[in-house]
């Protein structure tokens, strides 16, 4: 009976959000699929060309290169993001000294605009005037000095690092909220059973956070597969395409060449890939039958 009553609230609860989504998102997205089947002039007149844009896309080495880079950013970025973010959130959940202060400070970079953060890091990375290379040299590690953004071997990681540095506060806030909500009695029980802190963290906390972590990983993947802003400002996709992402590729197609059909096709492929990866991740990270 309660179940039946519950059912009655489904529609009114969901409807407002879905209406907004339908008008401002789904409609433009469906339209995008339509755009991808056309060829455009700069003035916006279009001509139906069927799957031609997809054919062009599949023969474009720049597209494969940008896909590869996009996946690399997602992969490298998750390595740079999650271990420290989880550790920091765990630390904050222990309410160590200065917890409030740290919480505040860790979040602060998020508030800075992408433009300012990029300018800051361009200077930090600067090969001769910067801070990183001179610091390495002064520590006698001059051999490690690199032209960070100018070296195809390091540029991608350098750009990814900046974007992780800027956004990590958000992930920490979400993870903290997860840690805060862990039932204290379960943790206490584990500790009474003689589990060390590390064990409590690894075998009790992490499994309980699994749903949240899965959500966050999917969010990260979906977000980083669309990486655009930092790449665009820091390297513009260079040196020679080594940091070019699907985002920057689409931007060039749409905004420099006014080739909306091509950009839309790339966008559609990207959305399909994101859906597939998200689904795969969910399968892989699906909860085992855990009891706690």
């Amino acid at each position: 009976m309660y179940k039946a009553a519950q059912r009655r609230i489904i529609v009114p609860f969901l409807a407002p959000a879905l209406v907004l989504l339908a008008v401002f998102f789904l409609y433009p997205l469906i339209k995008t699929v339509d755009l991808s089947l056309n060829e455009f002039s700069r003035t916006g007149t279009m001509r139906f060309v069927g799957l031609e844009q997809y054919r062009l896309l599949s023969g474009d080495p720049d597209f494969y290169n940008s896909l590869k880079n996009t996946f690399l950013i997602t992969l490298i970025g998750s390595g740079m993001l999650f271990p420290p973010a989880v550790a920091v959130a765990w630390a904050l959940s222990q309410r160590i000294h200065g917890e409030r202060f740290f919480r505040f400070v860790l979040f602060a970079p998020v508030v800075l605009s992408v433009a300012v953060v990029s300018l800051l890091w361009k200077f930090l990375y600067h090969p001769t005037l910067g801070l990183i290379n001179p610091a390495l040299e002064s520590m006698g590690l001059g051999a490690l000095a690199k032209t960070w953004l100018g070296d195809p071997a390091t540029a991608l990681a350098a750009v990814t690092f900046v974007s992780v540095w800027h956004g990590i506060g958000i992930w920490i806030v979400l993870l903290c909220a997860g840690f805060e909500r862990l039932p204290e009695d379960v943790l206490a029980a584990a500790r009474i059973d003689g589990a060390g802190e590390w064990r409590v963290f690894w075998s009790v906390m992490m499994p309980m956070m699994r749903d949240l972590l899965r959500v966050l990983v999917v969010l990260w993947v979906v977000q980083s597969l669309q990486t655009f802003a930092f790449v665009y400002i820091l390297t513009g996709g260079g040196p020679f395409g080594s940091t070019d992402t699907v985002g920057t590729l689409m931007y060039r197609a749409a905004f420099e060449r006014a080739d909306f059909g091509y950009a839309a096709a790339a966008g559609v492929v990207l959305v399909v890939i994101m859906l597939a990866v998200a689904k795969l991740l969910n399968k892989v990270m699906k909860r085992d039958d855990l009891q706690y």
Partner: peptide, 14 residues
Amino acid sequence: KGFEGTDFTAAQAQ
């Protein structure tokens, strides 16, 4: 030296 990683503002400044 290091132009590879130098952005245009810095290059002009130098």
